[in-house]
Deep mutational scan, measured.
Amino acid sequence: LETFPLDVLVNTAAEDLPRGVDPSRKENYLSDEDFKAVFGMTRSAFANLPLWKQQNLKKEKGLF
């Protein structure tokens, strides 16, 4: 999966995202380093959170 810089994904409308980016899964296009910096946890820890908590975190970080 291709990764993009944080500033390309945060608070970006679906139509302005790079081609192929799923707007409902912007976090998947962050590098592992950016993911950890944004969410303060690994991808696996994030995946283990309840869906509502994942969505709330994504909203807080501008990735929803």
Rank of each mutant, 00 (worst) to 15 (best):
D34C: 05
T42R: 07
Y29K: 03
F64L: 13
K58L: 05
E33A: 10
F35K: 00
N11V: 07
F35C: 00
D16H: 09
N56P: 00
L49V: 05
E33F: 11
R43P: 06
V8M: 15
V10H: 05
P18E: 04
L51V: 13
L9C: 02
L17M: 06
L63R: 02
G62A: 04
G20R: 05
K59M: 14
D32Q: 09
A13P: 14
T3Y: 15
P18R: 00
D22S: 02
Y29T: 02
L63P: 02
V10P: 01
L63W: 04
Q55I: 15
D22T: 02
L57G: 00
S31H: 06
K53E: 15
G40I: 05
L6T: 04
D22H: 04
A37V: 13
F46C: 00
M41G: 00
A37G: 09
V21A: 03
K59C: 09
K36G: 13
A45C: 10
Q54L: 01
K58M: 03
G20F: 08
A13K: 13
D7A: 14
L6R: 04
N56M: 12
D32E: 12
E2P: 15
F4H: 06
K58I: 04
G62P: 01
F39E: 00
L30W: 02
L49H: 03
E60S: 10
E33D: 13
V21R: 02
G62R: 05
A45Q: 13
G40P: 00
L9K: 01
L1Y: 15
F4R: 02
K58G: 01
E27M: 01
P23W: 03
D7K: 09
G20D: 08
K61Y: 12
L17R: 01
L1P: 12
A45R: 11
S24N: 14
L63I: 05
N28W: 12
K58Q: 02
Q54R: 13
E27A: 01
S24G: 10
N48H: 13
P23Y: 08
L17Q: 03
K58A: 04
G20M: 05
E2T: 13
E27C: 03
D16M: 05
D22M: 02
A13T: 10
E33C: 09
A45I: 12
D32I: 09
N48L: 13
R25W: 07
R25G: 05
L17Y: 06
K53M: 13
L6I: 12
V8R: 10
A14T: 13
A14V: 12
L6C: 05
Q55N: 15
K53P: 01
K61W: 07
K58S: 03
F4K: 02
F39H: 00
A47S: 11
S31L: 04
K36A: 14
F64R: 04
L63G: 01
W52Y: 12
E2V: 15
K61L: 08
A14M: 09
L30Y: 01
G20T: 08
E15R: 06
L63C: 04
E2H: 13
P50V: 04
S31T: 14
S44A: 13
N28I: 10
V10Y: 07
K36P: 04
S24K: 09
E60P: 02
E60I: 10
A47K: 13
G40T: 06
T42G: 12
L63E: 01
Y29S: 07
K61Q: 12
L57D: 02
F39Q: 00
F64K: 06
K36H: 15
T3N: 05
V10E: 05
L9R: 01
T3W: 12
V8S: 08
Q55A: 10
A45S: 11
F35V: 01
E33H: 14
F64N: 14
P23T: 05
G62T: 01
N28C: 11
D22W: 01
D34E: 08
A13H: 09
S24R: 10
K36D: 14
L6G: 02
G40S: 12
L51S: 10
M41Y: 06
A14F: 09
A45D: 15
E27L: 01
V10C: 07
D7H: 15
V38M: 06
L57A: 07
P5E: 06
G20P: 08
D32K: 07
E27I: 02
G62F: 07
F64H: 15
E33P: 10
S31Y: 02
V38D: 00
K58D: 00
S44F: 12
V10R: 10
N28M: 15
E27D: 03
E15S: 09
L49Q: 06
G62M: 05
S24I: 07
S31I: 05
T3Q: 07
M41N: 00
L9T: 03
V10S: 06
D7V: 09
R43V: 05
R25L: 08
F46R: 00
W52G: 09
A45H: 12
F4P: 01
D34H: 05
K59N: 07
K36W: 15
V10K: 10
D22Q: 03
K26W: 04
F39M: 06
M41P: 00
R43K: 13
R19D: 15
D7P: 06
T12Q: 07
A13C: 11
Q55T: 13
D22F: 03
T12R: 06
L49Y: 06
N28T: 10
L9Y: 01
S24V: 07
S44P: 11
Q54F: 00
A13Q: 11
K26H: 02
D34W: 03
D16I: 01
N28D: 15
E15A: 09
L51A: 11
A13F: 07
K58Y: 03
D7I: 09
V10W: 06
R25P: 03
